[in-house]
Simulated assay, not measured.
Amino acid sequence: MLATSERVELLEKADVLAKMIMDSEIAEQYQMCLYKLQHNKESQRKINRFVSLKEQYEEVQRFGRYHPDYKRVMGQIREVKREMDLDSHVADFKLAENDLQTLLDEISLLVAGAVSEQIKVPTGNPFFDNHKNHSGGCGSGGSCGCS
């Protein structure tokens, strides 16, 4: 790979685009929500409780209904996950994360579409995967139509 002036210019423009994304309101909202989530003791307690219970859940899943603690762990994991998901900081972070992911998906589709409509962009979002020829491609589990 040779470092041509065209390649260097493209990389510089990519850096400018990345900076524009990081300076956007969506990215700032994401950073703010992440900060609040990471620095709220109650939210972190709920997340840590869920993570520790998730390890028990994975152990129970190996044996299914035959595990002696199946009912207890399954009930607890649902309760703890609901408590975590209803936490305002967790909910705000998830919304901000989804907004940022949507922005990145839109940019990916625009860049790929500018090069060729045949380029597959695995967004993981059915809304974007149904647009034009961006069906998710081979690597995303979508049906790209190639043979």
Rank of each mutant, 00 (worst) to 15 (best):
N130V: 05
M22C: 03
A3Y: 07
E25P: 00
E12V: 04
M32V: 12
H39D: 13
G75E: 06
I26C: 03
G142T: 02
D15I: 02
L53H: 06
M1F: 12
R72Q: 11
V16H: 10
Y70S: 10
Q29H: 04
E9V: 04
I47E: 02
E79Q: 11
Q61R: 11
V60H: 09
V80M: 07
N125T: 05
K71N: 08
K120E: 12
F50H: 13
V16T: 14
S108K: 04
S52N: 12
L86V: 03
D92V: 00
Q61A: 11
S52K: 14
E28P: 00
D92Y: 00
R7E: 05
D23P: 06
N98L: 10
E28M: 07
S108C: 11
S116W: 07
S116P: 07
M74G: 10
G139C: 14
D105H: 14
K71E: 14
P126I: 10
Y35H: 15
R49M: 06
E79A: 06
A114E: 14
L37W: 08
V115P: 02
K94L: 07
L100K: 04
Y70K: 02
R7Q: 09
L110W: 10
G141D: 05
E6Y: 10
L53T: 05
K13P: 06
E25A: 11
K132I: 12
E117N: 04
H131R: 06
L17T: 06
A114C: 13
G113I: 01
M20C: 11
R65M: 07
T4Y: 04
V121L: 08
D69S: 13
